[in-house]
Simulated assay, not measured.
Amino acid sequence: MDVSYHKGHARSLGRDMEYKRYGHAGRPVVVFPTSQGRFYQFEDSGGVGALAEFIDTGRIQLFTLDGIDSESFFNKHADAAHRIARHEAYFRYVREEALPELQAVAAKSNGGRPLKPLFCGCSMGGYHSSNFVFRFPELASGVISLSGVYSARDFFGRQLEGNIYFNSPLDYLPGIVDQKLLGRLRALRLIFCCGQGAWEERMLV
């Protein structure tokens, strides 16, 4: 399996960010880490190995991103405005810096043919991947979210002012009336999976 490591300065965040690429060709799959996870987490948890056949045969190539949850959603020492602003900066990094670079690499490996990426992640990564795709459907081919969280209330309580609201899918999705945007969302492949265990039982209460 072809594996490469990348590191560069992210203007949107004012710090270095890292990611790894697995594979030589195929549809790009962008993977967000779980809560406060890093770019190498998906490999360490067995995700890359589980997809080895698809990667080695050139059907997909993974791009596992770094995260900054400890600076945003899980930064209990900062106020809500700072935390959500930091998250918005992270999404700008993904949208304006990481994605163009990843797509250029993927297109080159596919004979110049651009392919919109599929986004995925587990737990907090499921939240980030689905929230990103819901907000920017024109940049994606779909999402696979595994046991994700879909409400910002889990992190900010009843506060849903400003950008907090626009990062809470269970709240903003029902309010979408723009038919063009709804058409884009309906054209995507949307796959949501949920495990069975103590965490899922707690979320159903």
Rank of each mutant, 00 (worst) to 15 (best):
H6Y: 15
H9I: 07
R11N: 10
S12G: 12
G14K: 08
Y19H: 15
K20Q: 08
G23Q: 05
G23L: 09
H24K: 14
A25F: 07
G26V: 07
G26D: 07
P28G: 07
P28V: 05
P28A: 10
S35P: 00
R38S: 10
F39K: 00
F39S: 10
Q41D: 14
F42V: 03
D44W: 11
A52I: 04
E53Q: 09
I55C: 04
D56R: 09
D66M: 08
H77Q: 14
H77K: 14
A78D: 14
I84C: 10
A85F: 08
R92L: 05
R95V: 02
R95K: 15
E96I: 04
E96N: 14
L99D: 06
L102H: 05
Q103H: 09
A104M: 06
R113L: 09
R113T: 15
K116F: 09
P117V: 10
C122G: 11
S130E: 01
N131S: 02
R135Q: 06
F136H: 14
P137D: 02
L139H: 03
L139G: 02
S141N: 01
A152E: 03
A152H: 03
R153I: 00
D154G: 13
F156K: 01
G157C: 06
R158H: 08
N163W: 12
Y165E: 06
F166C: 01
N167P: 02
N167L: 04
L170W: 01
L173K: 03
G175S: 12
Q179A: 13
K180N: 05
L182N: 07
L182Y: 06
G183S: 06
R184F: 00
L185A: 05
L185Y: 12
L190E: 01
L190N: 11
C194N: 13
C194L: 14
Q196W: 05
A198R: 13
E200T: 13
M203Y: 14
M203S: 15
M203D: 11
M203P: 02
